[in-house]
Design a protein around this nucleic acid. Structure first.
Length: 315
DNA sequence: CCGAAAATAT
DNA sequence: CATATTTTCG
């Protein structure tokens, strides 16, 4: 019977999250610099190249099928399309500049986290170790430590949930125990129910028996964690928090950005700061002003038209 | 290399 | 002060 349940969440998964453009207001560059040029697309801020930092992190093609008999890796895009100019087989050179540089704090955005969860789900809790996860994610710049750290937190989150999910968890609300700001990130991603209260399937040493892979084709992000992105996202995250759209008739909560009340933690932070909210923490290095335009669109329905596409031109 | 804890940064 | 992410230790 459980099997059916699993298939169910599986089917619902799609609706659970990716969805709406509302959730993807992030400005992912869909157009590569080269492409833009080819199409003669005038990049905004022409005079303002947004000299946002672009520490060229190392980018590895990530080769391995890490999965023995695992279905083809998710359509996770390898998130690398910068091979245009670097195609030169030069020595491999190897010189990935950025090997000993202190890379900026990694910001786990919902998208990244989703990728993380997907990877873990496909690997199965058993094989979900940092290294493997990292490889599956194929996110350029991601290090094993990044994943390990996040995994640690993720596990704690899962554990926490198990204890709170006393209501039989069946049917009612799968995951709605705590809405601490902390869980927001995790809430944004569908937590495979197998993870909860359920140990490795006996008799199976490998990945879960079934793993049809979810239809997350909506993934339209070319993820390349760069300082630029991080800054933008970070900035957004700070401003997000209250969205007046109480699931207007929806009924399904996408579980993200629509948490009505902030817990104490949130208040504490505000208390520390001024009610006027002027907390704009720009990273030290370049305090260039970004053209972020994430409008809460209060009032009627929201209007998500965030197109801050800027050239990742880094190659 | 993995996992947990301590240390730091925000 | 709390939380997120990094670095250190076992």
């Amino acid at each position: 019977m459980r099997e059916e349940e699993e298939t169910e969440w599986f089917a619902r998964w799609e609706e659970h999250l990716p969805s709406p453009e509302e959730l993807t207001p992030l400005s992912q560059t869909l157009i590569t610099p080269a492409l833009a040029i080819a199409f003669d697309i005038p990049i905004p801020a022409d005079g303002n190249p947004s000299p946002i930092l672009s520490p060229h992190f190392l980018h590895r093609p990530l080769p391995p099928p890490a999965s023995p008999h695992l279905p083809p890796p998710p359509d996770f895009e390898t998130s690398d399309l910068n091979s245009a100019s670097a195609a030169s087989g030069s020595g491999g050179g190897g010189d990935e500049p950025a090997r000993t540089l202190k890379r900026p704090r990694l910001v786990w955005t919902p998208q990244l986290h989703k990728r993380f969860v997907d990877a873990v789900a496909h690997l199965g809790i058993k094989n979900a170790v940092p290294k493997t996860i990292m490889q599956l994610m194929s996110v350029d710049g991601l290090t094993r430590e990044n994943v390990a750290s996040h995994l640690q937190k993720y596990r704690l989150y899962l554990k926490r949930m198990q204890g709170l999910s006393t209501s039989g968890g069946g049917g009612g609300g799968p995951i709605s125990a705590s809405d601490a700001a902390t869980d927001q990130l995790f809430a944004s991603a569908p937590v495979p129910h197998h993870f909860l209260s359920r140990r490795p399937v006996a008799g199976l040493g490998g990945p879960d028996p079934f793993l049809p892979y979810m239809p997350v084709t909506a993934l339209q992000h070319h993820q390349q964690i760069t300082a630029a992105m991080q800054q933008q996202q970070h900035y957004h995250q700070r401003h997000l928090g209250h969205f007046g759209s109480p699931t207007g008739g929806g009924g399904f909560d996408h579980g993200f950005l629509n948490r009505p009340a902030v817990s104490q933690s949130g208040m504490h932070q505000m208390l520390g700061a001024a009610p006027g909210m002027g907390l704009m923490q720009l990273t030290p290095s370049s305090a260039a002003s970004f053209v972020d335009d994430l409008e809460p669109a209060r009032g009627g329905s929201g209007e998500r038209k965030v197109l801050t596409l800027f050239p990742t031109g880094e190659d």
